[in-house]
Design a protein around this nucleic acid. Structure first.
Lengths: 165, 165
DNA sequence: TATTGTTATACTCTATAACTATA
DNA sequence: TATAGTTATAGAGTATAACAATA
């Protein structure tokens, strides 16, 4: 032990390997937590509101944009291809939760908007959803949550730069 | 501002609301990072190895258990139902990567194991996968990664207690 | 020509339930 | 009876590519 002077190469190498394992272990633990949280939210969304995460996410996007979003914008924000947005929008529209309003300037496009019913439902769901999230993260102090939030900002930027897909 | 003495109730309430928003914002940022990382890994796994995350995960479980795992154990560890494990195992077996060996004591069960080919392939994939993960988390210092790892341990335990499904 | 959105198709993962064989 | 595993079925989400209408 304490061979810092005699075996620098080996120490460097093992440190590198340790850091590799560190990143991998971190990712696996992260993924495990994420899966559990997502599963919990997914199941509750299905049980209490008969909906799914993609549907919830689409409505969340619309709630932030009362003037509406085009199918293309939804596709980009949800990071899925156009065909999928058509399908999910079809479902929500048939349930009277969203509407394809005519676009003010582009006759090819729609301005997808929440209906009053959709908005009311979404707000109920969002409130409940937020309570679930608060409970799930209740194991952390506010300071820990804040620290995590900051650290994730760094990661997010790194990810955006690293793979500018 | 600084109404700590005059309006304690309001301050408490706004602090609670802030903490709610804090948890939600944290979760949304977290989810965004996770999605990006997972997408990157999923795409690379498909492009470079023609495989998927569930297949990779199943092989990862087997690599840790050279004596093999039963279908049931795989089902539990991967947190999916039995029918899915049958399907994925069928694929991998047809490609010669895993084998359903007879179980030593229970004639109903199998001992699913990696074949030598499967083991070799998995080790190649795992090495590359680990490199991706290291790159994706390169925005953090080793200390930050260690701190995150610790904090996730707390969360994981909270999640395990909270919903003992 | 390029873009918006839809349609058609196919693939993966997932869950549920009925079923066989063994414990 | 209970458990291990398979099969059949169905449904959600996803991507791709061909297509119509409009820019």
């Amino acid at each position: 032990m304490a061979a810092d002077e005699t075996l620098p190469d080996t120490d460097l190498e093992s440190r590198v390997i340790d850091e590799h394992h560190q990143a991998l272990k971190l990712w696996l633990r992260w993924l495990s937590c994420t899966t559990r949280i997502e599963d919990a939210i997914r199941k509750r969304l299905a049980a209490e509101f008969g909906t799914t995460l993609p549907r919830f996410d689409l409505m969340a996007q619309l709630e932030r944009q009362p003037e509406g979003l085009t199918m293309r914008e939804l596709s980009q924000r949800l990071m899925v291809t156009g065909g999928n947005v058509t399908g999910i929008t079809d479902q929500l529209e048939s349930e009277g939760l969203v509407v394809r309003a005519p676009h003010p300037t582009d006759r090819r496009a729609f301005s997808v908007q929440l209906t009053p019913t959709g908005r009311k439902l979404f707000r109920r769901m969002a409130t409940t959803h937020e309570r679930w999230v608060v409970e799930l993260f209740a194991g952390w102090t506010p300071e820990q949550k804040a620290a995590m939030h900051e650290q994730l900002a760094v990661l997010k930027q790194h990810l955006a730069q690293g793979s500018p897909t």
